[in-house]
């Protein structure tokens, strides 16, 4: 293969991994802290994309500003979601809780999807923001600026999350809950509040990713569940609850899709799930799972 093409493919793959990791990090945080597989994660992403579109379209705001405006609101959405629908399940037995939470989040996913498609009735179901950020071209290599921004944001968010977890009281409490819920309770950590904060941050990340999705591609009511499934594969592949694992999982899938997809687009999409199954067979707790 031509070296220039190989370089371009590697860049594409890594940047794609960044796009994946962005939403997956939030999902991983939620699972790590609360033990809930949040099947509604992708719906919040989609919903945020819709709101960003509405703010951009109706108020004429710059789409990036719209993301900055909308995404923080989703912190509240996530916080309330946990308080209203996840907290009541907290006292159930381990596998019952996993099952109940799966049901609740699935139900919410169906509601959000259908309500969104209902709300956009009469208009079109798909929304996309018309904005073009010119590409950086270095010789023969194309560096899509938007994806570079996303990649930088992902790295920054992961770093911020890392610092937050390490140096703030709440962060330490989050870690404590992740590692040993009962021990944390015994030491006076309000696990309910920590769960809600984790949901808030996680949903905020999904919302940020949704903003980029509507700018970089398009959102439609039915994109939620398939995306959730993909993010779930990424965090499982990387090891549930490990942020570095998420970044790694995202980049592996991104590279796999880019490289295989160049020769055969069909198998390019398949490779993500092949890798998921293959990696779990070798490492039942994911690449970086403990």
């Amino acid at each position: 293969m031509d070296l220039a093409i190989l370089v371009q493919l590697l860049i594409n793959g890594i940047l794609l991994g960044g796009v994946y990791a962005m939403a997956a990090v939030g999902l991983s945080l939620i699972f790590g802290v609360s033990g809930v597989l949040n099947l509604a994660h992708g719906e919040f992403l989609m919903l945020s994309g819709f709101f960003v579109y509405v703010v951009y379209d109706r108020l004429g705001l710059n789409p990036f500003l719209a993301v900055a405006l909308v995404a923080p609101c989703f912190f509240v959405v996530g916080y309330l979601f946990e308080m209203g629908l996840i907290r009541p399940l907290a006292l159930r037995k381990e596998h019952v809780r996993l099952a109940s939470a799966t049901l609740v989040t699935l139900g919410v996913a169906l509601i959000v999807e259908d309500a969104t498609s209902f709300a956009s009735l009469g208009g079109s179901f798909e929304k996309s923001v018309d904005i073009f950020v010119p590409t950086l071209v270095l010789g023969t290599v194309f560096l899509p600026s938007l994806k570079l921004v996303i990649f930088a944001v992902v790295l920054a968010l992961i770093a911020a999350l890392f610092l937050f977890l390490k140096y703030t009281y709440i962060g330490l409490a989050v870690q404590a809950v992740t590692q040993n819920r009962r021990g944390a309770v015994l030491n006076g950590v309000n696990t309910f509040r920590i769960n809600a904060i984790a949901f808030g941050i996680g949903t905020f990340m999904a919302a940020a990713a949704g903003g980029f999705e509507v700018i970089h591609s398009a959102v439609a009511p039915d994109i939620g569940l398939p995306l959730t499934l993909k993010y779930l594969s990424i965090i499982v592949m990387g090891g549930l609850g490990s942020f570095a694992g998420v970044a790694l999982g995202g980049v592996i899938i991104g590279l796999g899709e880019a490289l295989v997809g160049f020769y055969n687009p069909a198998w390019g999409q398949t490779v993500a799930y092949l890798l998921l199954v293959a990696i779990l067979l070798v490492r039942p707790k994911g690449l970086l799972g403990k």
């Binding site: 629908l85 609740v104 699935l106």
Partner: peptide
């Protein structure tokens, strides 16, 4: 979805 949420809750 509402039915499913109620069951889960």
């Amino acid at each position: 979805g509402g039915v499913i949420v109620v069951v889960g809750l």
